[in-house]
């Protein structure tokens, strides 16, 4: 037993008492004050975003008007708005939007189902896991638009070729992300599932998908982005040959006719749909799930 060394105790040093007089703080300036109405409005995010938008519209309109840019090169904002109203008035635009969206949603849905089947098989059998990883590594970097010339040869001109390349653009991105997400589900959570006696489909629905939802969702977002770009590209390149034609075809047709106002109108609709899908649909789903569950900030 070692003895604890006793420290020599020192008596506390008494310090002299002091009393502070309040310092004059006026030289600091305002420390706290209620925000003015303008400042409170400026602190709202949406107001600032809208200001940026309005600013750009004003700059655009002023630039095209003052510099006298020919509308053949760059139409003014008001021209573009008139063109949008025109396009909607004779129902061409609605038909084109519905054509684009129908093909797109078909391709996206089929792609999601195919990815789900592939990933399920890969989670059960190791051979399928190898097949899936090899195939995604090979086909994910292959732009599906490059397959379009061949698809048109195999399946003819028409919606089927479009859906084929859309499925190709969706399936690999989604399958890759979902598989990586499933692999990353922690063994603890898996064991909880086994403990509850969950098997097969129920195991996937109750344990794997919720646990990997952040990755699965990001895969679905990337898949959507690829499909959206592929769709517009395909219509631009080969819209002339496929009957009907959608938004991409609207842009191509009008740029050939040098009707640039309508091209801008088409671009506006594309931006609108893209923003709606990304911020209204995917953002809402994220807010309701992964953000609410605290899996993503």
């Amino acid at each position: 037993m070692s003895a604890v060394r006793e420290r020599p105790r020192t008596d506390p040093v008494p310090r002299p008492e002091i009393e502070r007089t309040p310092i004059d703080v006026r030289h600091i300036g305002q420390i706290e004050r209620p925000l003015s109405g303008i400042e409170r409005v400026w602190n709202v995010q949406i107001v600032r975003n809208l200001t940026v938008l309005v600013m750009f519209v004003v700059i655009w309109e002023a630039y095209t008007r003052i510099a006298d840019i020919p509308p053949l090169l760059f139409p003014s904002f008001t021209d573009t708005c008139v063109a949008i109203v025109d396009a909607f008035r004779d129902h061409r635009m609605l038909a084109k939007i519905s054509f684009t969206l129908t093909s797109l949603l078909t391709g996206y849905a089929v792609g999601l189902v195919a990815a789900a089947v592939l990933v399920s098989a890969a989670s059960i059998w190791r051979v399928w896991a190898d097949i899936l990883t090899t195939a995604t590594a090979m086909f994910n970097p292959l732009p599906s638009i490059a397959l379009l010339p061949l698809a048109m040869l195999w399946f003819g001109l028409g919606t089927f070729s479009l859906v084929f390349i859309l499925v190709h653009s969706v399936v690999w991105a989604v399958a890759l992300n979902a598989y990586v997400g499933f692999q990353g589900v922690s063994p603890t959570q898996r064991m909880i599932g086994h403990n509850y006696g969950l098997r097969g489909v129920m195991f996937a629905i109750k344990i794997l998908i919720p646990a990997a939802l952040a990755t699965v969702l990001s895969g679905m977002k990337i898949g959507w982005a690829f499909a959206w770009r592929t769709m517009i590209g395909a219509e631009l390149v080969f819209g002339a040959t496929a009957r009907g034609g959608g938004l991409g075809w609207h842009i191509f047709e009008n740029s050939e006719l040098l009707n640039i106002r309508q091209v801008f109108a088409g671009l506006f609709m594309i931006i609108l749909i893209g923003v709606l899908v990304e911020y209204a649909i995917f953002r809402t789903v994220e807010l309701r799930t992964v953000r609410r569950w605290g899996m993503q900030r």
Partner: peptide, 19 residues
């Protein structure tokens, strides 16, 4: 700007860029 222009497929700008 980015949230507006990011969903716009770049290829849709090609006809304009050509002009």
């Amino acid at each position: 700007l980015a949230s507006m222009l990011n969903p716009l497929p770049a290829i849709a700008l090609l006809p304009l860029a050509l002009i």
